[in-house]
């Protein structure tokens, strides 16, 4: 090995070492993304019978169990909200106080806030029944990837129905979705997801 080669080798060694150090320094100083599913969800501001309710301002610090549906849904929404309520009842009183169940109606045409307040409360005392103008609802539903579509039923006395996804969103205290419970998830499993969110956020 010549002297020149030795110098080169030394320079390469120093450079790779500093590159490695830089990478590990960047990794350790990386800003941690908030825990949870950050690609969907986010803050929302909707209307209740008591006034405006914002996730970050009014519900922050609590775990939120959120469901999109409509009050005249005869079966799917009541089943899901019943499951949500049953899941909450499986938690201790102390835990229940740290959870806010929320029902959002995607049918502002038929559901006003007064009706929604009574409706939600019938499943679980304190469950919020929220809605808003259809544009606001469309935006929030889009951000949560909650799908709904008004479908006229021509030969039916109900006039129209709403095809919709049926998912319980478990949102952590940090306002970030922690987990999803697909339609038909058993109360115990929903309770476990809520408990996990209580512990991890």
């Amino acid at each position: 090995m010549t002297k020149k080669q030795f110098v080169w080798l030394g320079m390469i060694a120093v450079m790779s070492l500093s590159a490695g150090l830089l990478v590990s320094w960047l990794a350790s100083n990386r800003i941690e993304p908030p825990k949870g599913i950050t690609s969907i969800g986010g803050d929302f501001t909707l209307q209740s019978s008591q006034g405006t309710v914002s996730l970050s301002r009014d519900l922050g610090g609590r775990v939120v169990a959120l469901y999109f549906g409509f009050a005249s849904c005869p079966d799917v929404c009541p089943t899901s909200l019943g499951i949500m309520a049953a899941a909450l009842r499986q938690l201790s009183d102390e835990q229940q106080q740290q959870v806010q169940p929320v029902f959002v109606s995607v049918d502002p045409e038929r559901d006003d806030v007064e009706k929604l307040s009574l409706y939600a409360d019938a499943f679980y005392p304190g469950m919020l029944g929220l809605t808003a103008d259809s544009e606001v609802i469309r935006d929030v539903a889009w951000r949560y990837r909650a799908i709904y579509k008004k479908v006229p039923l021509e030969d039916s006395a109900i006039g129209y129905t709403i095809d919709h996804s049926s998912i319980i969103y478990v949102i952590g205290r940090n306002g970030v979705i922690q987990s999803l419970a697909q339609h038909g998830t058993a109360p115990a499993e929903v309770a476990a997801k809520i408990q996990a969110a209580l512990l991890s956020t």
């Binding site: 849904c73 005869p74 079966d75 799917v76 799908i147 479908v151 039923l153 030969d155 039916s156 006395a157 109900i158 129905t161 095809d163 919709h164 996804s165 049926s166 998912i167 697909q182 339609h183």
Partner: peptide, 20 residues
């Protein structure tokens, strides 16, 4: 009730559809 109908649900791609 004012009207009584037979309805069914179809769950496809995570979407619940109720039809007469």
């Amino acid at each position: 009730a004012a009207a009584t109908e037979i309805h069914g649900h179809v769950m496809a791609d995570g979407i619940m559809r109720m039809r007469k």
